[in-house]
Structures are given as structure tokens and as C-alpha cells.
Amino acid sequence: MVEKSFPPGDGTSRSETSTEPMTADRTPLFCDLALAERIERAEALLMAECAEAAQRRGTKGFVRVVAGGVASFAEEDSPYNKVAGLGFDGLPSAADLDAVEEAFAAHGATPQVELAHLADPEIGALLTARGYRLESFENVLGLALDGEYERSSPAGIVIRPSGDDEFEHWLDVMAEAVAEPDTQGVPWHEEFPREIYQRALRDSASAGVRRYAAVRADVLAGGAGLRVSEGIAQFAGAATAPVHRRRGIQSALLSARLADAKAAGCDVAVITTQPGSKSQQNAQRQGFDLLYTRAVLVKHNP
């Protein structure tokens, strides 16, 4: 399942779907402005903390607060180079946007804004007037954690925390899996070199993303991430190595993280997917509801 709270792409098998039946009387999660603001604030905080982690290992990046959101740059080609969380705390001023665009330009990067459709619509008009162009969309799905969640794994599959002793191996498995991504639906608008993806995973670990390992036949077969922020459980990436797909690993990773998110006191779990993707379909089968869409707006320099 592709979960884009940090680097997207996981190569989930198209046949690896949920075995959990959905009840007909389940009430879908409704996303009001307050919930959207919480989710976007958690996303912005994750981008900022990952960019700061990159700087601690020596990159020349930046993090700028702008109108309730953040602009962050970790390193060249990083998935943490973007503006997130705008639209819930007033309009950014022209001076704010000038400063952000100049900061990206100083690093040879293109400004990219991920704007929730529940944000103040004037921000979209403001950005397009400055030359930003719509390039793609991504969907934010959520699940209200108001029930009891137990870990469930198929026979022969073990889901456990992934320790530092296997970090390098875990990184290799994740990179192998994302090399063959989900191809159903709208393609991801971003692709990242293997070494950049792995460094981004290191930075996310430094930013508090918990790592999970899926073990099959005593072999590390996949992994996933979970980050908890202000009651929001961000499902931060999940991957299964190609040779181990069609075994129910993704569903097992999901159930383990749901149980841990509930135990940590979260009230909402969030997954970000590409529109129409198998990942979105699988998430909805697990009970996640489509909450809102983000527009990806990019300003290409002449």
C-alpha cells in the first residue's frame, strides 16, 4: 500500500487486498475544517522535522514557517522539498512567498505547494496569479479509531518493531519494493533515486517515525512506518519485497499499526494515496474514508 506521509511508492501487489469485511452500518468519517487543519499541521510538522534531520547530517537545507504551514528543503531531489499545511491560518503575504521562492531558488529547487482543497480557496488564486501551475493531485484518507484493534497476521507472517541492528537491511528491502510501485490509477508525480529514498527514510526515523518489520520464513519481507502527532496516526510508508507479495503482509502491517495507534491514544489514522490507485482501493476496503484531496501546485522558473 502506498502511503505518502513520507516517500511514496511501495510496490503493493494488486491482489493483496483486505480480508476484513466492512459493516453496512458503519458511519463514514466526516472531515470538517478542524480535522483537516489537524492533519495538515501534522503533515507540515513531519516535513519540517525530516528536513531538520537532514540538516543534522550535514545538508544545506532550510525550514521556514509560512502562514500556518511550513516550507522545507532537505537536499536535492528529496521528498521533503515542499510547502505543506497552508490555508488554515490566513493568507501568506507576498513577502512571505517571495522569501520562500528565493530560498528554493538558492538551492536550485522548484517551489512545490501541496494544498488541501479544504484550505482557504484564496490561496489557490494567489498562487496561480504568481505563476504556479496545477500538476497533480493526491488523496488523503482517514479512519476514526473508535473501535478495538487487534493485530492479525496470516500463518507464517510475523510483524514486529524493526530495531537499529537491522536498519541497513530494512532500508534495502524498502528500496527494493518501491522499485516496482503500484501502477493502477494516476501515476505518482514524483520519483526519487534509490539513495535519496533511503536517506529520506533515515531522516524520517530521526523525526520519530516508528519502523515495522514483516518477517516471512525467517526472512525480512517488508516494512512500514507509523508516526503519531497530536492524536493523528500518520501511516508513513509500507512496502513488501516482490518475492513475498500475495501473502497478506500489507494487511498484517496495517492491523499492527492500527492497534499501536489506538494504544497511543490516536483518534484518527491517515493514509495518503494517488487517486484511483490500488492503494486507495485497499485502504477503503480496510475502512478508510476519502477525506479530501491535495492539489500539487508547482512554479517552474523561466
Rank of each mutant, 00 (worst) to 15 (best):
K4R: 12
S5K: 03
S5N: 12
P8H: 12
G9N: 07
R14Y: 05
T19S: 11
E20H: 06
M22H: 12
M22F: 14
D25K: 02
T27L: 14
P28L: 06
L29K: 08
L33N: 09
A36P: 01
R38F: 07
R38A: 08
I39S: 11
R41C: 10
A42D: 10
A42E: 11
E43N: 13
A44S: 15
M47G: 12
A48H: 05
E52S: 11
E52K: 06
E52Y: 04
G58K: 13
G58Y: 15
F62G: 11
V66Y: 01
V66W: 00
G69T: 03
F73R: 09
A74F: 10
A74L: 09
D77K: 13
Y80D: 05
K82F: 15
A84E: 09
G87H: 00
G87K: 03
D89S: 13
G90V: 03
L91D: 13
S93W: 12
A95N: 09
L97V: 07
D98E: 13
A105P: 10
T110R: 12
P111M: 07
V113H: 10
V113N: 09
L115P: 06
A116L: 06
L118E: 06
P121W: 02
E122A: 15
L126Y: 05
L127I: 02
T128V: 05
G131C: 04
E135Y: 08
E135F: 10
F137S: 10
V140M: 09
G142I: 03
L143T: 14
P154C: 03
V158P: 03
S162D: 04
D165Y: 01
E168C: 02
E176C: 11
A177C: 01
V178N: 02
A179T: 05
T183L: 11
G185L: 00
P187F: 12
E190I: 08
F192V: 15
P193F: 15
P193T: 11
Y197H: 12
Q198P: 00
A200C: 02
L201Q: 01
S204C: 04
A205R: 15
V209Y: 00
V219G: 00
A221I: 06
A221G: 13
G223P: 13
G223V: 08
G225W: 05
V228M: 14
V228I: 15
S229M: 02
G231A: 00
F235S: 08
F235R: 07
A238I: 08
A238F: 08
A239F: 13
A241N: 10
A241E: 05
R246I: 03
R247T: 14
G248Q: 01
R257Q: 01
L258T: 02
A259D: 02
D260V: 10
D260M: 12
K262F: 06
C266F: 04
C266R: 06
A269I: 13
P275W: 03
K278I: 15
A283D: 04
R285D: 02
R285Y: 01
F288S: 03
D289T: 08
D289V: 10
A295T: 08
A295F: 14
V296M: 05
L297T: 00
N301D: 11
